[in-house]
């Protein structure tokens, strides 16, 4: 086939087309290069080097950082982090999906109002919102006082500085990130598919299980990734609400760069986080392809 083309004219046209495309895409390419490719390559490079005495990295190439990353003490931290992030994600889906579903059933103008209310907390500083939970959860806080007053408990519960408090804090912080993609998926779902199911004899509940839920799973998975990944890497919430007793991988990475001054080991940990993220997106894409019945995206 290609042999039949006149090489000169063909490649000239191709070059021009590529040039035209490059002209349009360079701002995006420049952005990705400067803020994603370069940092990731730096992290990748650092991970094979030796720690410098006062931070930074020095020359000898080594794989020790990777070997260290699988020591039992760190494996425990990963396990705790994964558990907390997974619990947060599960709760976020359990609360976020019904919330998004309820919003998608509202009359059109109330939908916008509800969505604004969902993202409104984002306009306040993340730190302030996390501090607010300290006030809510401490032994003299409103939660304990209410429980004491209605006689459910005899003495204040220890709510603050527990893994539970960390999960509550993360859940509160990232819940909108599951509501929005699920809402978008529900909004995009062709309402005629639900009508078709009912026309074929399915009840409302049956229609939800057979049509609405499966077809919005890709959106829910995007939401799950949006909650899971930052929950895994968060270090502010474990510190403030976990009281430093719950160490997550985010705290570990932060400490390597700022306190232990072990940049290479921090870089290895950061690479692991990136790998988790890529794996999660690849999994989501594969499931979405399967559900939509497209051979390739």
């Amino acid at each position: 086939m290609t042999l039949a083309h006149r090489p000169g004219g063909h490649s000239a046209a191709r070059r021009r087309a590529l040039l035209g495309r490059a002209t349009l895409t360079w701002p995006g390419l420049a952005y990705i290069t400067a803020f994603m490719a370069v940092p990731v390559l730096l992290v990748l490079g650092f991970s094979f080097l030796t720690r410098g005495r006062f931070g930074g990295v020095v020359a000898p190439f080594t794989l020790d950082n990777f070997a260290r990353a699988v020591e039992p003490v760190y494996l425990r931290i990963y396990a705790v982090s994964l558990l907390i992030a997974a619990a947060t994600t599960a709760l976020a889906l359990l609360i976020g999906y019904p919330t998004a579903y309820a919003i998608s059933r509202l009359p059109a103008r109330w939908r916008t109002v509800a969505l604004i209310c969902i993202v409104l907390p984002f306009w306040t500083s993340f730190l302030i919102r996390t501090y607010a939970w300290i006030l809510l959860l401490n032994s003299e806080g409103p939660v304990n006082r209410t429980l004491l007053e209605i006689g459910l408990i005899g003495a204040p519960l220890r709510l603050l500085y527990t893994p539970g408090a960390v999960i509550v804090g993360l859940l509160y912080a990232y819940l909108p990130l599951v509501v929005l993609p699920v809402y978008a998926a529900l909004d995009r779902l062709d309402p005629l598919l639900r009508e078709a199911a009912m026309n074929l004899g399915a009840s409302r509940a049956r229609t939800f299980w057979d049509i609405t839920l499966p077809l919005t799973i890709p959106g829910a998975l995007i939401g799950a990734i949006f909650v899971f990944v930052p929950s895994l890497g968060n270090f502010v919430v474990p510190e403030l609400l976990g009281g430093g007793k719950t160490v997550m991988i985010g705290n570990l990475i932060r400490d390597q760069f700022l306190e232990a001054r072990d940049w290479p080991f921090g870089a290895v940990l950061a690479l692991m986080m990136i790998a988790v993220l890529l794996g999660a997106f690849a999994g989501q894409a594969a499931i979405a392809r399967r559900i939509n019945g497209t051979a390739r995206a």
């Binding site: 062709d190 005629l192 009508e195 078709a196 026309n199 004899g201 009840s203 049509i211 559900i291």
Partner: peptide
């Protein structure tokens, strides 16, 4: 879902 009539939708509305 209880009516003994079936509708063929203009867009077909097949379950993807």
């Amino acid at each position: 879902n209880r009516r003994p009539v079936n509708l063929m939708f203009q867009s077909y509305a097949l379950f993807p």
